[in-house]
Design a protein around this nucleic acid. Structure first.
Lengths: 223, 223
DNA sequence: ACCTGAACACCGTTCAAGT
DNA sequence: ACCTGAACACCGTTCAAGT
């Protein structure tokens, strides 16, 4: 066990550390602190390790203080998931652009997607995998998820314009690609890839290469 | 809120069905009954709906009777997962064979995989998705999972021999295909496929067609 | 507004005891 | 062998009360 409250240090800090004195109100942005602590716990031990009581105690706050900022535990996890989609989008878009777009950029984008999942397995599982009680999705979460997906659509349209990819419906194409990287990510996280192919990034490159052949533009039989 | 204890009334009351008389031992195969009841509950409300207390009560058995047949709750869920892999293997192999193997059979196999997942979403989630506490996998579960995977490898090798598919490492190829159908299945289960492509089977056929082009044997430039 | 402690209705699991 | 009830150490959430 680490000392309680050591992640709060990431926050801009209102004072030396953020710990509050017993009996006083919480210092500053409890909402932010709750999300940060939940994410920290998720990284260390998965969603199942998150208990409202534990989070509150680490933050030096009463067990029910959370309900001032979230309707319930699920709402807290939804916020964590939302943050994950934002990070995923930023990682993939940056890879796409730094890779110079086109073929190389697209490969980098795919690798970045899988890498994010493998490096943040428990966080990724909260985003997908049904850890959320999702009868009615949080609209903010849906929006962030849609934005991440849109980045992929944009990259595909760009390549279609450049004549690199067949001109199928971009949404359909994007879902196809998404299913592949998502499948690789999930299998890798669940440790279901054989030892020979445990190098996930390498495997991702292989997959992207194979898919390339499948979605390549037809051999230029234009008008 | 309902009055406490009124759920017991749902039981057929000690007669027609297999319910046992109060105070007596369980009729026959309690182990089987536990797995069946757990699966039933999973289908209706997901893994989270499974409580040992609830399962026991439905079966008219004490809350701790389960521990005579399973080391803990996780062991029960592992058995449910194992059963899922067996069903998945049977469904895919049958599709492959009834489809006449080859191209058509392989497409049928892929569709069967995704269909199983979509028709048994909560069961599928127990098989993957980390619902299990899997620090050390149940060897029986691993075996059943490997058998399901092997069916895919076999189908690929068969097609390689028939010159339909490029002669890459079959294991690698199988993992690639698996990632795709798994990705489609998970996204479908999580309701993340757009309305336009909500017809999962159709979408699966599209994906398989695109992948076909990527894994096809090179245009016969042999010796 | 924001926080608190006590209380409620749940969990999985252990254990001494019964047949 | 197989089953039992009581008990233990947990949960998320509600609620009247405090500042």
């Amino acid at each position: 066990m680490s000392t309680p409250g050591d992640i709060i240090d990431n926050m801009p800090a209102i004072g030396p550390r953020a710990a509050k004195k017993r009996g006083q109100y919480h210092h500053g942005d409890l909402r932010r602190a709750l999300v940060g602590e939940a994410l920290h716990t998720i990284r260390r031990g998965g969603v199942e390790a998150v208990t409202l009581r534990g989070v509150a105690e680490t933050l030096g706050v009463s067990r029910t203080a959370l309900y001032r900022h979230f309707t319930d535990k699920n709402a807290l996890l939804e916020t964590v998931a939302r943050e994950g989609f934002r990070m995923l989008r930023e990682a993939t878009v940056e890879a796409w652009e730094r890779g110079g777009k086109g073929r190389a950029g697209f490969e980098a984008m795919g690798v970045a997607y899988v890498s994010f999942a493998v490096q943040n397995p428990e966080h990724y599982r909260v985003m997908f995998g049904g850890a959320l009680t999702t009868p009615a999705r949080d609209p903010e979460l849906a929006k962030e998820g849609a934005a991440a997906f849109q980045a992929l659509v944009d990259a595909l349209v760009d390549q279609q314009r450049a004549g690199l990819i067949r001109r199928d419906d971009p949404l359909r194409l994007a879902q196809f690609i998404w299913a592949i990287v998502h499948g690789i990510a999930m299998l890798a996280i669940d440790r279901m890839l054989r030892a020979e192919h445990a190098d996930v990034e390498k495997f991702a490159r292989y997959a992207i290469a194979r898919v390339r052949d499948g979605i390549a533009a037809p051999p230029a039989a234009h008008a």
